[in-house]
């Protein structure tokens, strides 16, 4: 899996970037979603994969015996997931509102604020 997952991550990044480069606002949002999947999976993989039990100390035991998964990246990813959920929700609302005021989904029509 150490070979496969990096390729999956790379593909997710590639697909995310491709979607970000579209003219459609909705596709941009989907690209952002893919980007966050890619990042989370990257943290998970880069920290080292362990095909083993969760980092939870069994009720009967006093301590966790190896092998077990690394708990720290899990906590980090959890934080990242929740943050990206908030961000995605906001981006959705923004897209909706932008669509309402500009009346198009085409990003190329949204350039009145640049120089």
């Amino acid at each position: 899996m150490e070979i496969v997952l990096p390729v999956v991550i790379g593909s997710l990044y590639a697909m995310a970037i491709y979607m970000l480069l579209r003219r459609s606002l909705v596709k941009l949002l989907i690209g952002l979603g893919l980007l966050s999947h890619a990042s989370n999976l990257l943290i998970f993989t880069a920290a080292g994969l362990t095909r083993s039990k969760a980092p939870v100390i069994p009720l009967a035991a006093d301590q966790l015996r190896p092998p077990h998964a690394d708990p720290l990246p899990q906590a980090l990813i959890l934080t990242a997931i929740v943050i990206s959920f908030g961000v995605t929700a906001f981006a959705l609302a923004l897209a909706y509102r932008a669509y309402r005021s500009v009346n198009t989904d085409d990003l190329d029509q949204m350039k009145t604020t640049d120089a």
Partner: peptide, 19 residues
């Protein structure tokens, strides 16, 4: 597509290395 694939490859290599 080319830009995306290059980026993807870079990230793949990076993850290989880091893991």
């Amino acid at each position: 597509v080319i830009i995306a694939i290059v980026t993807g490859c870079l990230m793949t290599i990076f993850v290989f290395v880091a893991s």
